[in-house]
């Protein structure tokens, strides 16, 4: 955040590289189908949580429709491949561009008259509701509540070499690593980091010193929407089923928020820490059923009331105390 000197930048890059290596090597330690599935899940949530953290932590835009953005891309790609027989990867790209456009559109509408963080929240929450009702209601197209099975993602030589599960994990992990590096460049290396931080601090002052606040917000939204779209489409193929339950507020947004806030919103590795911790927690409270929602509710209350700065800031303080 505070202008890092050249030395610290190198350290951060090293940390990121180490994290990437660890992510890729995880399946060597955690073997077996179950673990591989959970790790893949975690990688997707690194992307969702990072995008939420970037939008909220750096541009003050509280997007409460991460699931809908992911779902738009998943449904687009899934429908195009299953109904029109189109090729997978190009439809994933199309779906992600669609998600990016919708995210940018929502951001644009919310910022037309500078209605602030509350309005973005209301608008995106309404949009999430629109999405869920739309895909449930258009039964002839989407299969309604039960959803539909898209044709499996052709994994090519990678699949025949490593098997489907491992290939999916590697794809998701590479996407997560890519997201981390994009966020690192955006937040810490480029002038965008400072400009976003200014916008987050004081919008009127930002505008008055020459920052096109709306453009910054819309651009960041488009980029986040694109990342969410990529992850969302792949998540659909990974689950093998595209249905409203996978792309509901309860199954994606809540986890992404908890992960991003716990780790530290607006930081690069915060969402990663959060995803690791809460993927583990989630697996362990899954048996609770609907009441796990209450657990997350209580968690959000406690996190925000007492732990708003997040893990990264806390770690920074601890390490400063130690060294």
């Amino acid at each position: 955040m505070a202008a890092p000197d050249e030395h610290r930048i190198d350290v951060r890059l090293l940390v990121l590289a180490a994290i990437s290596a660890i992510l890729l090597a995880l399946p060597l330690v955690f073997t077996g189908r179950y673990y591989l599935r959970v790790l893949t899940q975690m990688s997707f949530f690194i992307v969702f949580a990072s995008a939420f953290g970037l939008l909220f932590g750096r541009t003050n835009q509280l997007f409460l429709c991460i699931a809908a953005l992911a779902g738009i891309s998943a449904y687009t790609s899934g429908l195009l491949t299953s109904r029109l027989g189109m090729e997978h990867w190009s439809t994933i790209l199309l779906g992600s561009i669609f998600s990016a456009g919708v995210a940018a559109g929502l951001s644009y509408v919310a910022n037309v008259r500078r209605m602030g963080v509350v309005f973005v929240a209301i608008l995106t929450l309404a949009f999430q509701l629109i999405f869920e009702n739309l895909v449930t209601g258009l039964v002839w197209l989407t299969g309604g509540d039960t959803g539909f099975r898209p044709p499996p993602l052709p994994l090519g030589p990678l699949g025949s070499l490593l098997g489907e599960q491992m290939s999916f994990y590697l794809i998701a992990a590479v996407l997560a690593i890519g997201t981390l590096f994009v966020n690192y460049w955006l937040m810490e290396r480029s002038k965008w980091g400072l400009i976003m931080e200014a916008v987050r601090n004081e919008e009127v002052a930002s505008e008055v010193i020459g920052i096109n606040v709306r453009r910054v917000k819309v651009t960041v939204s488009a980029l986040s929407g694109f990342m969410i779209g990529l992850a969302g489409a792949l998540y659909g193929y990974f689950n093998g089923l595209i249905s409203p339950i996978y792309f509901s507020f309860a199954s994606i947004d809540i986890l992404s928020q908890v992960m991003a806030v716990f780790g530290g919103r607006g930081t690069v590795i915060g969402p990663l820490i959060g995803s690791a911790v809460f993927t583990y927690v989630n697996e362990n409270i899954r048996y609770l059923g609907p009441i796990s929602l209450s657990v997350y509710g209580a968690l959000i209350v406690v996190l925000f009331a007492a732990f708003r700065e997040g893990m990264v800031a806390t770690l920074r303080r601890w390490t400063r105390l130690v060294f």
Binding site: A3, K191, L194, A198, N201, S206
Partner: peptide, 17 residues
């Protein structure tokens, strides 16, 4: 000012904008 940024970054952002 941009309260949570350093004095230096406040000025730098004025330039970069």
């Amino acid at each position: 000012p941009f309260a949570e940024m350093t004095v230096l970054d406040n000025v730098v952002v004025g330039m970069l904008a």
